[in-house]
């Protein structure tokens, strides 16, 4: 197992995702002899996990069962331990395409936060790219580095514990793309520019507040960035449901006298007639705002 390469069987030391049910998942570090408690009972790693195929059904001690999945950045995003507010897959997908990430890309990111985006970036730039991620909070930086190691992507990433606004990314002229998710991105724009290849590249800043966007766009324009464009992208989930719609009873219709009474009675809907349709309903509440994504192109300098 690695976050950048699939394997078929669960091995000692892997991180597996236990799927308990709809939107209920947990990551598990697979260790010989270890046990994991779930609401369906205990999973014994040595017998229930190690050597099993990813995607198989595992029966827990109380007789309930779960599926064990191969980790992916997307599963990690919904199961990771939150140390900060994180980026979710809808924004991550948009960022990945608009930053033009692909295998071999060199990317700078700040802050690392809980590593949700970092894992997605690493997946996309492997096996030949590199991620330089900067986090000003020491424990968070250490924890992220530890996770990258556990997820076997540490060869693709350098974690730096410094303040990007003051000290930049620690590299110059190497990045194809830069991503900023910090409180004052406008203070890091010049560092972003310095970190990027002279041939140019793409930059993205994620900010929840429009005032931040305003200042960042100004800074980007001042630094000579082009094609500055701000978007917002939201996910709309459609829950598939069987819906029953009752039919109204208007009583017997005297105008349709042509048919015999018996036939008319037969045709009239019975008291509790209804029609069942398959449709979708929106969830009652959805995330209505995550942040604004500002993209720009750095021209050749």
């Amino acid at each position: 197992m690695s976050f950048v390469e699939y394997s078929d069987f669960i091995q000692d030391g892997d991180v597996a995702i236990v799927y308990l049910g709809h939107d209920s998942m947990m990551p598990v570090k697979v260790q010989k002899g270890a046990q994991t408690q779930t609401r369906y009972g205990v999973i014994r790693h040595s017998t229930d996990l190690i050597g099993q195929r990813y995607g198989s059904k595992v029966t827990c001690s109380k007789g309930g069962w779960v599926h064990v999945l191969h980790p992916t950045p997307e599963l990690w995003t919904v199961t990771l331990p939150h140390r900060t507010q994180i980026l979710y897959t809808t924004d991550i997908a948009t960022i990945t395409m608009m930053l033009e990430l692909k295998p071999g890309s060199v990317v700078c990111e700040s802050g690392t936060g809980s590593g949700s985006l970092s894992h997605a970036i690493l997946r996309t730039i492997a096996p030949t790219g590199h991620l330089h991620t900067v986090e000003f909070h020491q424990q968070r930086a250490e924890k992220a580095a530890e996770e990258f190691k556990e997820h076997r992507v540490d060869h693709l990433v350098t974690v730096r514990n410094q303040d990007v606004c003051k000290d930049g990314f620690g590299v110059t002229g190497v990045a194809d793309a830069v991503f900023l998710d910090i409180p004052s991105p406008w203070e890091a724009v010049r560092h972003a520019k310095a970190a990027m290849k002279k041939q140019g590249g793409r930059v993205c800043s994620f900010s929840p507040c429009i005032e931040q966007v305003q200042r960042t766009c100004e800074a980007l324009a001042d630094q000579g960035f082009e094609e500055i464009s701000t978007v917002e992208v939201l996910l709309r989930v459609h829950d598939v449901r069987n819906v029953s719609l009752p039919l109204p009873d208007f009583g017997p219709d005297p105008s349709s006298q042509t048919e015999s009474d018996a036939a008319a009675a037969e045709k009239a809907p019975p008291n509790h007639a209804s029609v069942t349709i398959k449709t979708t309903t929106p969830p009652r509440e959805i995330p209505g705002h995550t942040g604004y994504l500002t993209f720009a192109t750095k021209p050749r300098t």
Binding site: Y19, H22, H67, T90, I210, V213, Q214, C217, E218, I228, S229, T230, V231, E232, V233, L234, L235, R236, V237, H238, D239, V240, T280, Y292, T294
Partner: peptide
């Protein structure tokens, strides 16, 4: 199959200009 989800995305572009965002 598990984790089935039917979705679409809503995408909005912004004009960002001083005092005219």
């Amino acid at each position: 199959t598990i984790s089935l989800r039917l979705t679409d995305t809503w995408l909005r572009h912004y004009q960002v200009l001083p005092n005219r965002t």
